[in-house]
Structure formats: structure tokens, C-alpha cells
Design a protein around this nucleic acid. Structure first.
Lengths: 182, 182
DNA sequence: CAGCTCATGTAATACGTTACATGATTAC
DNA sequence: GTAATCATGTAACGTATTACATGAGCTG
């Protein structure tokens, strides 16, 4: 059992910050706080919570209605989070479905290729707008999750803006290579 | 069998562009042309080539020494690549191990947190420099892979620069929150 | 009491990594 | 002839997604 992956530490970290939550709570927390950074499916999360319990990094603090289990991080869990944060070098997994398609864009017509890039650009513009709305809707307190969440939000904005600008640049390059009135 | 994933189309796409290659050739091509966009292990690639063959999207054009199989895309493969490019909406999988750690950075001391961010920033600076070297070393022709590879390279440069700038901004925010001389 | 939300779980399958295994050909 | 490179494959395991299954408790 290697258990090297990050979902485990995402769950553990959230539990540490929240100081007590059920799987159901965590699942919602995943979506609202770090949907842009890490994703978890219900199935995966519940399984991981059981493994974390078996490994002693979290424990069931109390049980509520409907079989609800209130989890809480243990000292061992807090230590493990710290170890992962500082001693496990982050891995860069670069997998980008849009970029991958770009490589093969020569296989469709120039018009189709340009349309594809414009679509991506528009989709991003929309997501950027959504992010702005979301930012306004959140009341940013001074707790850890809010503070660091705001930093991540800024990252998202910069990322999307960079990407949109790049799409526009790509469109110019495509036009240069295949001038309409050539 | 869903076979929805992108490695399959990355391999197929490269084969279309290269017009004939062995698994071994493809593996090297993956590294040099799109290491920053998609990754493939030897094991996974060889397996996928066999599946693509079974599905009729590629075929063994000839066999060479040492059991070498020279693959070639079929018409069905070219059609499948086109379909994937235009009809399958790219999925955004957001998983960033650095960003994930950032969320929990409140669990270590301010100094440790800042050191972490500085390390990431320095690592990125180095990768940005490496990319610049690589860019100089490649002779960019006018074939598709070169043309689109150059667009992807520009993306990589913009991405890293954006990210490095964001790291520096994060350091400022961290300093504001926890002034040394508070 | 009907419908929604809360709440957890399993099964099947696909995707991805690491390690192991094997051997032919080429270059020196 | 021996070391490097070329070349392909399997086994074991870990990670992730989708679909299915079940039921309790709350709200109107």
C-alpha cells in the first residue's frame, strides 16, 4: 500500500482545518473551497475516509442521525499533513486536453481550427466572469481556508486571463500562417 | 470498453503526423514534442498501440529488426482523430499539487510556509530557463508538429511566467498577514 | 405522507505507474 | 565481445470514474 496520492491529503487537510466534519460535509467543502484545485468524487472520498481511519490519521469523533460519522483528525494525522506539506515534493502532472488537441489542429481545416480556438477562448471568458461573480459572493474572513482560498482565487484569475490572451495570440498566429486572402 | 481517454488520441495523432513509427519512436516523440502537455509511460503506450490496432485505427505497416512494428494510421484512425478533435469537448481536469498544499499552508509556521513558496518559485524559474534553452536548440520547421509545437512552447513560457509572478505576489500577501516586525 | 436532502456504501471498470522480464542489433 | 541502444511485452498494484443501492430524517 503506497497511498501516495493527494486526495488523501486534501481530505486530511480539510478535516484539520474544519476540525470535525462528515464525509458529506467534506464533499461539499471540496466543491466550494477547492473545486478549481482538486476534485473528489463521492465514491472516492468515502473510501479514502475509511482508509485514513484505518491508518489512524483520522477518527470517528461521534455518530449522528442517518448513520452520520463526524470525523476528526488525530495527532498522527496532523503530523502526516505536515510531513506531506514540507517533505513530499509536489509532482507536476501536466495533462491538458486543449493543448493536446492543439498539436493536431493541422488535421482539420484552418477555419475549423480557428473555430475551435475561438470556442475555447469564449468558454474561458465565461469561466472568468463566473469566477468574478463567485468572488463577490464569498465573504472572505480571516480563517486559514478563507485566506489561502483567496490566494488560490487570484491564481485562478491570473491563469484564465493568461490563457485567454494566449488563445487570442494563437488565433493571430493561425491567421498569419493561413491568410484568408492569400 | 469506454476508451475515452486522451493518451489514445495523443498516440493516434502523433502517428497521423509522423506517418509511420514504432512504439519506441512514439515514446521518444512524446517526450520531445509534448512532454509538457501529455505524458506516456512505455507500458501504457505499448498497450494502447495494441488496442488501437484491435480497433482498426492503426495498423502494422511493416515489421523490422528486433521485432520492431512500424505502425501507420488507417483512414478510420484519421476519421477518429478528427471526430475527437472537433466533437469531443475537452475536459478540464484541475489537479495541482502545489495549489493543494497552499490551502493548508496555515498548518506550518509562517517561515516554513514562505520557504515553501520561495522553493516553488525558484524551481519554476529554473524550468523557465530550461525551456528557453530548449527553444533555442530546436530548429522550428514549417511542418505541423513544429508549428503547433511552437504555439505550445509559447504557452509554456507564459504559464510559467504567470505562475512565478503569482508566487511572488503570494509571498507579499503572506508577509502582510504575518509581519516580521509585528 | 411525499419529496427533498442527508448520508454512506459497493461493484465494475477504466486509466496510470512501477517493476520486472526478455532478447535482438549495432557500434566500438 | 561487450556495452549501449533498440524493441516489446506482462504483472501487480494504485488511483479514479460511473453507476447502482439503500435508507434515515426533515419540511411542507
Amino acid at each position: 500500500m503506497l497511498r501516495n496520492m493527494s486526495l488523501r491529503h486534501a481530505a486530511l487537510g480539510l478535516l484539520v482545518e474544519m476540525d470535525g466534519a462528515s464525509g458529506y460535509d467534506l464533499l461539499k467543502m471540496f466543491e466550494i473551497t477547492m473545486g478549481n484545485v482538486w476534485q473528489a468524487t463521492q465514491s472516492q472520498l468515502y473510501g479514502e475516509l475509511n482508509k485514513l481511519t484505518a491508518d489512524g490519521f483520522i477518527e470517528v469523533a461521534s455518530e449522528g442521525p442517518r448513520g452520520r460519522k463526524e470525523y476528526r483528525a488525530t495527532d498522527a494525522g496532523r503530523a502526516e499533513l505536515r510531513r506531506w506539506l514540507l517533505d513530499v515534493p509536489p509532482k507536476f502532472v501536466r495533462r491538458d486536453e486543449v493543448l493536446l488537441r492543439l498539436f493536431f489542429l493541422g488535421q482539420v481545416s484552418p477555419d475549423e481550427g480557428a473555430a475551435f480556438v475561438r470556442e475555447q477562448s469564449a468558454a474561458l471568458e465565461k469561466r472568468l466572469a463566473d469566477l468574478g461573480e463567485l468572488e463577490g459572493a464569498i465573504d472572505w474572513g480571516d480563517e486559514n481556508l478563507s485566506f489561502y482560498g483567496r490566494l488560490a482565487m487570484e491564481y485562478g484569475k491570473r491563469f484564465m486571463a493568461m490563457r485567454r490572451d494566449w488563445y487570442e495570440w494563437v488565433l493571430e498566429e493561425l491567421a498569419k500562417r493561413d491568410p484568408k486572402d492569400g
